[in-house]
Amino acid sequence: MGSNVLLEVKSLKKYFPIQKGFWRKKVGEVKAVDDISFYIREGETLGLVGESGSGKTTTGRAILRAIEPTEGEILFNINGTLINILQLNKKELKQTRKHMQMIFQDPYSSLNPRMTVKDIIGEPLLVNGVARGKELEDRVAELMKAVGLRPEYMIRYPHAFSGGQRQRIGIARALALNPRLIVCDEPVSALDVSIQAQTLNLLQDLQEKFHLTYLFISHDLGVVEHISDRVAVMYTGKIVEIAETEELFKNPKHPYTEALLAAVPKPDPKYRETRKLLFGEVADPSNPPSGCYFHPRCPYAKDICKQEYPSLINIGENGNEHFVSCHFADKLSLAGIE
């Protein structure tokens, strides 16, 4: 791992208690994020894919401490100093949060309908005492231009904008404090295809312009492949595979990644009938199966898979990193996408 690592997550866990009855007695735990580790380099985009309930959103939120993680370390590199975000007090956290922002999935519920665009984009500036008055207005206008909105619309309310434009407002708000890291949680899932492409292009342009680092959370493999430098695949709270994007798509090493790639309907009729179906459903994070969580659905499962959870190991060749958590990672030959 080089010195240009911006964020490093070590053994992050987030367990939600399951409560029952009048006294809200704890009867179990949902292991939404269960001991995951990864890092993101400065300026890169790490894609985080998985199905619903795999823990991608919880991971994104835990990094910003929008929810309190149960355990682990989140090391954030600010100009050479490593800060463990989980050890900060409230005041320090507020200082550090300037460097990390979030873009949300739903552009309808993530913008306050009673605030004007100027108030929405300007709020982080005001809260952090960065700008006010005319200066604030100038900065908001600048941000609106950067995301392709007309500054004249500053005094309008969110209802006057379409879904794609609202998402741009959300992006402008995230950019307001010149952050280093942006957690993008399904930023294009609610948008139509034509608007989706515009928004992805905008995110890429902004990344280049402002040297941003993205953690890009999505369930859409096509979108993740397009925008990410590296991809991590999650299943029931665990990372099962991380590799460079091209490597992961061409040469997947985890049976779940293979199945996921095979399940996506490709916009090309010639791929019909070539699909392998994965039976069963996503494992329940409050009551995961024994051994490898994927074994009940895995076509390659053997006895050991029912007993032991495989650790995430690097099987990359020639100094390339390719982490897989599968007992047979180096023995299976799995199909990727040509």
């Binding site: 295809v193 034509s194 989706q196 492409a197 992805l200 859409d220 493999l221 096509g222 979108v223 492949e225 397009h226 925008i227 994007t245 091209e246 798509f249 061409k250 790639l261 996506v264 490709k266 916009p267 090309d268 990727g336 996408i337 040509e338």
Partner: peptide, 11 residues
């Protein structure tokens, strides 16, 4: 429309 979809495997 066909061009604007990011296609899996065709980066």
């Amino acid at each position: 429309l066909l061009k604007s979809i990011p296609k899996v495997g065709k980066k």
